[in-house]
Design a binder for these strands. Structure first.
Lengths: 125, 125
DNA sequence: CAGGATCCGCTTAGATACTG
DNA sequence: CAGTATCTAAGCGGATCCTG
């Protein structure tokens, strides 16, 4: 079990890496932000437009959190008006890979989930 | 972009599959539950013991949600005391793969995140 | 343009007590 | 053993207003 799931069991320091990482990027928006930065650096408002439903506040908070963890780099060009660009760091790029796999799964299996949910709700009416 | 990230852009029905799936399995506990069921079926209290920090209530809620989406199957043996076993369905097994990749990433990069965070906090003191 | 600050409602989730 | 039910504190996040 330990070798099979290195990310999920408690380690020698008594905490679980998966739990740890989930607490950081497991929120509603971090994954979507990472994906939207994967191809190229993006500016604040462009990012906001590309992530449907995110508020200004949550985008700011999420970006700050990702920057804090070293997944995103923030670059300010001191022009007027200011131009702020967000880009993935190397570590950020590396997590984009497993996240992409999850996204692919989501695209392929969403209909299955929707149908399963409808059936469950019908049976427990 | 559409071909590159099939799970993240809005589809023809106007919603984003990734957003959709995140709303289901993107909470704090679902991923950990899926992982703990990957190897074999597990009973309720055994599951509770293996997931550090989860409350009885949250385990119940999470399992019900996963069952609703067809990722987990619940089997009751009508003995006394009752014996309830939870197992991944085939779909559940399939999502365990990308989740496992994410867990592996977590194990390999946690220290990096911890250090990056410490540095960030030091710089913004 | 890219945010910071504040206010506040609503959900989330922990604690506790009870049950077949 | 495997839950259900209820209560409640905390915090997450939206809306709004303001700034360099």
């Amino acid at each position: 079990m330990l070798q099979a799931h290195p990310g999920f069991d408690r380690d020698e320091r008594g905490s679980c890496p998966m739990r740890d990482v989930l607490d950081r990027i497991g929120d509603s928006w971090s994954l979507l932000v990472v994906i939207n930065l994967q191809e190229r650096p993006v500016r604040f408002n462009a990012l906001k437009r590309s992530i449907e439903g995110i508020s200004q506040r949550m985008l700011t908070v999420t970006l700050r959190s990702l920057e804090r963890d070293g997944l995103v780099r923030r670059t300010v060009k001191p022009t007027t008006p200011p131009e702020v660009e967000y880009a993935l760091t190397e570590v950020g790029q590396s997590i984009a890979v497993p996240i992409g796999a999850l996204g692919l799964w989501a695209a392929q299996n969403r209909d299955l989930l929707v149908r399963a949910r409808a059936r469950f709700d019908a049976e427990n009416a």
